[in-house]
Write a protein that binds this DNA or RNA. Structure first.
Lengths: 344, 344
DNA sequence: CTGAAAGCGCTTACAG
DNA sequence: CTGAAAGCGCTTACAG
């Protein structure tokens, strides 16, 4: 048996030997293309393909990439956990990539382990290009440097200036403020906030939600009651418990803004279970606009992208990837909106 | 300006030239290791590192991989959409990988575009190893072939025999049947099933849920009413609408098994909104055991892994990866369980 | 202590 | 129509 045989992947030399041709011919047959010249004749192709099948040859990605100066891989980087948005984008990228024979890898960056290894995937050219969802740990200078080295990049960010890479603007801060404005306009004065865990320590550019909450309250002369700001994990019993607790206070909030739709949904459950009518006794507005917000009753008022579609952004990445000369920088507008439904 | 300058990544030759050393020395300095010999002296190291910083050099992944015969990349393949389970596994893999200086890429395979390009990531050695969650589109023969070529593989599958790769057994079929058994034992005769879209066309090995549902009903002499089997998309208004419709029938189901916890949760919402008491008037059991099942009230009875932890599986992948000689095949038991809470 | 050289597995202009 | 050869950017045994 071959049990202890050292694993060696067959190479094009093995194919060439077996088919009685040169490695050049093997390569021509496998790639199907060949400069300007005609492809090898049918007979030769068959001999090569037979050898490939018999040996079970698979091309070596590293060698091909080194030689061709491209990896045929694109990445999607996003802060973990995944969401319907990152899932959808991955799916759309994959469809577009498949048409071109490229593969897509997802690069979830965990809050807990902001792995340097993950950034190396971009820096060391594991991929030819990438789409970066908001709040990935890369600064403008670094992105420019990557772009200058030929990496194709489409970056979701509301502040960065494009510089060799494209930027997608969502105006998240504006629409988060609109949500708080709405609650204030509805007459609410005690407005709670379900924060991302650790959000209060984030850089300002990242904590647009908390920042907008504070700012709008301030503008209306409403002080921020720190007791009404609760960090809760995404989609966990935390939010439910926090809302139970908030509603049990002597001076409970009458409205809640939540950094995530999932926590907002948990909040609605909690309110319903406690017999607090939503939105009459507790108005709830989420952030993110995930599809589940449509299912709960009352339907979730939220802030987010109006449609679950990234065709433009995906098209832009591939346009950059395929363009012979560097494309001019683009700014794509994909603004978030306040989506008023029933809960607030 | 360098706007039209063709992007060229600097190489170790550029560093060598600038630092006045050979490329061998650059490589030694950068890698920090050097066969048995001592590393270059401090002064040389500094010169090299200075040149690296000034030029903004980043190593080329393809070239390094080709030479070292390893990519320092591991993959996590799973059927899209992502779930708390795939997220958690990605996070645990990433933590373990980061300790070793490796990166993790996620490989979500979409039902709609079962991309050949994605399989190439495994076949063509983009990665050194991978963990495959259940229902990835790779057969036993193919997995064995990949393993024989030296790919390290840990595969979640209830049927496959390990063969150069390790297998994690969850016994999903058994525990799905246990869920139906429970409903029958509770006296239910009209038991509906919220299926994965397209599940009835899946291969038997993949449709363990539907199959278990049918089989147990058959064993108890309960005919399967096709009207009670509804395909619904994961986490979408579908499930909510389907349950509304089912409960409006003249002969509504008194119990529901759902292929996903999310749809089960939607079902509970729908029942509550219609004033049907859960579990008294409609018992609901989900499959998957996602954390959200704990939040809804009544808490979701479900089937799934009892704890959100993949340390053993992750450790096993890295053991394979790091072992000089091929490890003997392992079968890890990580059985799903019926987790009885309140909803059914 | 350092560098010249070979070679990883491909691709591709080029010569025959 | 086909093959010999150079070279992509690294690493590493080896010679000096």
């Amino acid at each position: 048996m071959a049990a202890t045989e050292p694993p060696r992947r067959p190479t094009q030399r093995d194919i060439a030997r077996r088919a009685g041709v040169s490695t050049a011919t093997v390569s021509y047959v496998l790639s199907g293309r060949r400069g300007g010249a005609k492809p090898p004749p049918q007979e030769t192709r068959e001999r090569v393909m037979r050898a490939v099948a018999e040996i079970g040859y698979q091309i070596d990605h590293s060698a091909r990439s080194l030689r061709r100066r491209r990896t045929d891989l694109v990445g999607l980087m996003y802060p973990a956990p995944s969401s319907p948005w990152s899932d959808r984008l991955a799916e759309q990228m994959q469809a577009a990539a498949a048409e071109r024979g490229l593969a897509v890898v997802a690069l979830p960056v965990s809050e807990s382990t902001p792995s340097d290894a993950l950034l190396r995937v971009l820096r060391e050219r594991y991929v030819d290009g990438a789409i970066l969802l908001p709040d990935c740990p890369l600064g403008g200078a670094e992105l420019s440097a990557l772009a200058r080295q030929g990496l194709s990049l489409v970056v979701f960010d509301d502040e960065l200036r494009p510089d060799g890479f494209d930027v997608v603007r969502q105006d998240r801060a504006r629409s988060c403020r609109a949500a708080v404005e709405r609650l204030v306009a509805l007459g609410h004065r005690r407005i709670g906030y379900l924060a991302h865990p650790g959000e209060s320590e984030w850089a300002p550019a990242r904590s647009v939600k908390l920042h907008g909450y504070r700012r709008v309250l301030g503008e209306h002369g409403i002080g921020v009651d720190p007791d009404l700001v609760r960090p809760v994990a995404d989609s966990r019993p935390d939010a439910y418990a926090a809302v139970r607790e908030l509603l049990g206070r002597p001076d409970p909030p009458t409205a809640l803004l939540s950094a995530t739709d999932r926590a907002a949904i948990d909040a609605i459950w909690a309110a319903r279970d406690l017999g607090a009518a939503v939105p009459e006794e507790l108005a709830v507005i989420g952030i993110g606009n995930i599809p589940e917000g449509l299912v709960i009753s009352p339907a979730l008022t939220t802030v987010g992208a109006p449609v679950l579609d990234f065709s433009r952004e995906v098209a832009r990445l591939f346009a950059r990837l395929e363009s012979a000369s560097p494309l001019p920088d683009a700014v794509l507008a994909a603004p978030w909106e306040l989506i008023v439904r029933e809960s607030g």
